[in-house]
């Protein structure tokens, strides 16, 4: 590892990490496309979000597991985990269908990371949760219903 790479990694905390690496010529432009998918995050319909993610034709997969409560009392913080048994999982995206913006988070996994992530999300009301997994450039999807007692995107 040369010192320039080290400096770039340090700077990466403050700016787009992959775009910085790309500018420095350290990663290929293909890798830099992993930068934030702005269109997906700004999408306010599920269709737009899936289109921006290139996931409209994602194959349904039983190898993706979404763990979430059947009934969430408090939509402000619903514990959710997504794990994938699909070999070479490189990305996991979580979408909350009934929220104002559909994409909650996108995780780009290194080879060192086990393909499982736990987090907490807001749910405006009862909703379907979608998990997308990208592996070797292909997209797979799973869905799960969560009933919400008190919504959590309050206005």
């Amino acid at each position: 590892m040369d010192s320039r790479r080290r400096d770039v990694l340090k700077a990466g905390g403050g700016l787009g990490i992959w775009s910085l690496l790309a500018v420095a010529g350290i990663v290929s432009p293909a890798r830099a496309q992993d930068a934030r998918n702005v269109a997906a995050f700004e999408a306010t319909t599920l269709d737009e979000a899936l289109q921006a993610l290139g996931a409209r034709d994602a194959a349904e997969s039983g190898a993706i597991r979404i763990v979430a409560p059947d009934v969430a009392e408090d939509g402000r913080a619903v514990a959710i985990s997504v794990s994938s048994e699909i070999p070479r999982t490189e990305q996991i995206v979580i979408l909350i269908e009934e929220n104002p913006w559909k994409v909650a988070a996108s995780f780009r996994l290194s080879g060192a990371m086990a393909p499982a992530i736990q987090t907490r999300v807001k749910m405006a009301r009862s909703t379907r949760v979608h998990a997308l997994v990208k592996a070797e450039g292909r997209l797979f999807a799973a869905r799960r219903e969560v009933t919400v007692t008190v919504g959590g995107c309050g206005t």
Partner: peptide
């Protein structure tokens, strides 16, 4: 990052809860 190497890069939208929580495992 672990010892300078990125192990996870994530993008969040505002649907992630207040005081975000993440848990995962690295080899």
């Amino acid at each position: 990052r672990r010892n300078g190497e990125i192990v996870l890069a994530a993008d969040f939208g505002p649907s992630i809860s207040t005081n975000p929580y993440l848990a995962f495992s690295i080899a």
